[in-house]
C-alpha cells in the first residue's frame, strides 16, 4: 500500500486493525513482519526519520490534569522542537482554546481535551498527521471546524484519518483504505469505491412484520419506519425482495459492500 499527499480515510469494522496500523506507522508498535517506508527509509529500523515530521493523535488520548493548556502544549511542543510561544498560542487559537490557555486541563470537558490533542498533533507543522477517531466527543460545529482543518492540511501533507464516522471521511478524504481482520481489502479514491458498489445497493419498502427477517438475511444500511412500511436500503449483489429498485450507493454502503465482498471470498 502506498500513501500520497492528501487525506487518507481509514475505514474498517471494530478490531479490523486500524489503530494497530496507525501505531505502527507512528513507530509506537513494531510490526511482527513486513516493512514501512517513509521517503525511502525503513522506519521500522530507523523510526527517528519519521518522528521528526509526525503529528499523532491517538484514539485513547488523555491530558496531564495539573498542567494548564499552555503548559501542556509547550511541553509537547518542546519535545517536538517547537519553543515559539506565538506558535503555541496560534495552535490554541486554531482549536478555539486560546481563551482557556491558563486553565488546568483537568477541568476541561471531553471535547476541549480532544481539541487540545488536535493542537499538539499539529504544533510542529508535521508532514504526516495521524489521527485516530479525532472527532469523537466534538460537537457538530467543532467537528466541521476540524474537518476543515484536516482538509487544509491535506493539500500539502499526508493525513491518515481513522474514524467510525463515515461522514467525516466522506467530507475530507481524497483516498480511502478499507481494512478487515488485519488485512487491507480495498484502497481507492472515494469515487472508485462508490463505482465498485454501483448495482449492489437496493431500496425497497417492506411490511413491518417482514423487516426482521430481511435484516437477518441481508446487510441493511438504513431503515426508516413510515406508514406504508419500512423504507430500507440493502447492500447485496442481488435484489433482496421483488419490489427492490437499484439505488445510488453512498460511502457507507460502499464500505459495507467492500467488507461483504471480502467475507464472501473467504479472505
Amino acid at each position: 500500500m502506498a500513501m500520497q499527499r492528501g487525506v487518507l480515510g481509514l475505514l474498517g469494522p471494530n478490531g479490523a486493525g486500524k489503530t494497530t496500523l496507525m501505531q505502527m506507522i507512528a513507530t509506537i508498535s513494531r510490526p511482527t513482519s513486513g516493512t514501512i517506508f517513509f521517503d525511502g527509509v525503513d522506519i521500522v529500523q530507523h523510526p527517528e526519520k519519521i518522528r521528526s515530521c509526525l503529528g499523532y493523535l491517538p484514539q485513547d488520548f488523555g491530558v496531564y490534569e495539573n498542567l494548564t493548556a499552555f503548559e501542556f502544549l509547550s511541553y509537547f511542543g518542546a519535545l517536538k522542537g517547537v519553543h515559539n510561544r506565538r506558535r503555541i498560542m496560534e495552535m490554541l487559537e486554531l482549536v478555539n482554546l486560546h481563551t482557556e490557555s491558563n486553565r488546568l486541563t483537568g477541568t476541561f470537558s471531553g471535547g476541549m481535551r480532544q481539541r487540545l490533542g488536535i493542537a499538539q498533533a499539529l504544533i510542529n507543522d508535521p508532514d504526516i498527521v495521524i489521527v485516530d477517531e479525532p472527532t469523537a466527543g466534538l460537537d457538530p460545529e467543532e467537528r466541521v471546524r476540524f474537518r476543515n482543518i484536516l482538509s487544509d492540511i491535506g493539500i500539502g501533507k499526508l493525513v491518515i484519518l481513522s474514524t467510525h464516522i463515515v461522514s467525516d471521511v466522506e467530507a475530507v478524504a481524497t483516498h480511502i483504505a478499507v481494512m478487515n481482520h488485519g488485512r487491507l481489502i480495498a484502497s481507492a479514491t472515494p469515487e472508485q469505491l462508490l463505482r465498485l458498489a454501483q448495482g449492489s445497493v437496493w431500496e425497497a419498502v417492506v411490511p413491518s412484520e417482514q423487516f426482521d427477517a430481511l435484516r437477518a438475511r441481508f446487510k441493511t444500511s438504513r431503515a426508516v419506519r413510515r406508514p406504508d412500511g419500512v423504507h430500507v436500503r440493502v447492500v447485496n449483489a442481488e435484489p433482496p425482495v421483488d419490489n427492490a429498485v437499484p439505488a445510488e450507493p453512498d460511502l457507507e454502503e460502499a464500505f459495507i459492500h467492500a467488507v461483504n465482498l471480502q467475507r464472501k471470498s473467504g479472505g
Partner: peptide, 11 residues
C-alpha cells in the same frame, strides 16, 4: 494520563 503514545511518537 494516556499521553505515552504521543511521547513515543515524538523525536
Amino acid at each position: 494520563a494516556r499521553t505515552g503514545f504521543i511521547i513515543a511518537a515524538t523525536p
